[in-house]
Design a protein around this nucleic acid. Structure first.
Lengths: 150, 150
DNA sequence: CTCATCTCAGCAAGACTGAGATGT
DNA sequence: CACATCTCAGTCTTGCTGAGATGA
């Protein structure tokens, strides 16, 4: 009765997994538009930002930290290397690895992207005040951490 | 200094648009796994659930309500019609339109999917208690509504 | 003529798989 | 030997665009 009605009306609208996906579509559209002028995409940003955060790292580690597949890491790093945003050199202590380093140019490019991305955040979150935004971020981080361990 | 540090450390980890996307990946993985046994996917569910909610509707209206592109609506409805989950017939009052109707078989299929999807919700949200889940859903709905109007 | 609807063909990005070569 | 790393080739879904045919 109530359950049937609640289940039927707004079944989709209240389905958390679908809500996440729909809002992510909004988020990604805003992000893609913000990055459009930079010639980079989300993967490029994630890798550069991670390099800036943790310093030189192997490709495998970059993949783990960004949750980008090993195979996509290769392709995007090729791209970034061509534009001189990163440098790849073999690790002398373990020759299976490449050590990836952020260049000064790459750092500048990252700063440029950061500027553009700030707008995308405001665009997505314009309906929420400061406190609500923190609340949302907090909940999302907890969900993500929960699944990182599991 | 502080800004630089905050910006550098956890730049990615705290970027709302990226968090949304990462959690949505988790959500979609859970959903896809849940629907795997049903032979349907997210689009199929969204269309059937909307038909159950609003009754017979044109394809254009289904597309607007689900935010599924007109062209994907066609393809997925072909699929659903083949499996006798829906019926398409021309609208006598406006012959541009097809009126799409949910069949009894389709309704049963929807119920089956609903069962599976409940697990996916719990899987995604296992780190949050009841109140936090409502909070999250509330915030997401507001973001979505905000962008539906704009 | 303009606008809406349905349909088709095809694209780009993102997430992912399998396998091979190399090295620990 | 088992295992990790890098690379390549290729797959599938999703979200989307453009254009045509029909009709209001």
């Amino acid at each position: 009765m109530d359950i049937a009605q609640d289940g039927a009306e707004g079944r989709l609208r209240a389905l958390p997994t679908r809500l996440m996906n729909q809002v992510a579509i909004v988020a990604n559209r805003a992000t893609d538009r913000a990055l459009d002028a930079t010639g980079s995409r989300r993967y490029h940003y994630a890798l550069l930002a991670t390099l800036a955060e943790v310093g030189p790292a192997s490709q495998a580690e970059l993949g783990r930290r960004t949750r980008i597949d090993r195979s996509d890491v290769v392709a995007v790093l090729n791209d970034l290397a061509e534009r001189a945003f990163i440098e790849r050199c073999p690790d002398p202590t373990d020759r299976r690895r490449n050590i990836v380093t952020l260049t000064a140019t790459g750092s500048a490019h990252l700063a440029e992207m950061d500027g553009h991305l700030r707008h995308a955040q405001d665009e997505m979150l314009s309906a929420l005040n400061h406190e609500e935004r923190s609340q949302l971020v907090g909940l999302l981080v907890r969900i993500l951490d929960d699944h990182a361990r599991g």
